[in-house]
Amino acid sequence: MNRFENKVALITGSSQGIGAACALRLAKDGCDIILNGHKFDERGEKLIAEIEGMGRKAAFLVADLSKAKEAIKLVTDAVDTFSRLDILVNNAGVEKNANFWEVTEEDYDLVMDTNLKGVFFGIQSFVNYCRKNKVEGAVINMSSVHEEIVFPHFAAYCASKGGLRMLTRNLATELAPFNIRINNVAPGAVSTPINQDLLEDKAQLKKVLQNIPLRRMGKVEDVAGVVAFLASDDAAYVTGSTYFVDGGLTYHYEEQ
Rank of each mutant, 00 (worst) to 15 (best):
N6F: 06
V8L: 02
A9K: 02
L24W: 01
R25G: 02
L26M: 05
I34Q: 01
L35W: 02
L35D: 05
F40W: 01
F40R: 12
E42W: 00
E45T: 14
A49P: 00
G55S: 03
G55D: 01
A58E: 01
A59M: 03
A59L: 03
F60K: 03
F60H: 09
A63G: 07
A63V: 12
K67H: 04
A68Y: 01
E70R: 04
A71V: 00
L74N: 05
L74S: 04
T76M: 00
D86L: 12
L88K: 07
V89P: 11
N91Q: 11
A92V: 08
E95S: 15
K96V: 15
N97K: 15
N99L: 12
V103Y: 12
D109N: 14
V111D: 08
M112W: 06
L116I: 15
K117V: 13
K134A: 14
A138T: 14
V139S: 09
I140E: 04
N141Q: 06
M142W: 02
S143K: 08
I149K: 00
V150L: 08
F154H: 11
C158L: 07
S160W: 13
S160A: 14
G162Y: 07
G163E: 04
L164G: 12
M166V: 15
T168I: 13
L171H: 00
E174L: 11
L175E: 06
A176S: 14
P177Q: 10
I180M: 10
I182T: 06
N184G: 07
V185D: 04
P193D: 13
Q196R: 13
Q196I: 10
L198P: 14
L199A: 07
L205K: 14
L205G: 02
Q210Y: 13
N211K: 03
P213Q: 04
L214Y: 14
R215Y: 08
M217S: 04
G218C: 04
G218F: 04
K219W: 06
K219C: 03
V220T: 14
V223H: 09
V226I: 15
V227H: 06
A228H: 09
A231D: 09
D233I: 08
D233Q: 13
D234V: 12
A235P: 14
Y237N: 13
V238T: 15
V238H: 14
V238F: 15
G240A: 04
S241Q: 15
T242W: 03
Y243G: 05
T250G: 10
H252N: 13
Y253K: 06
E254T: 11
E255K: 09
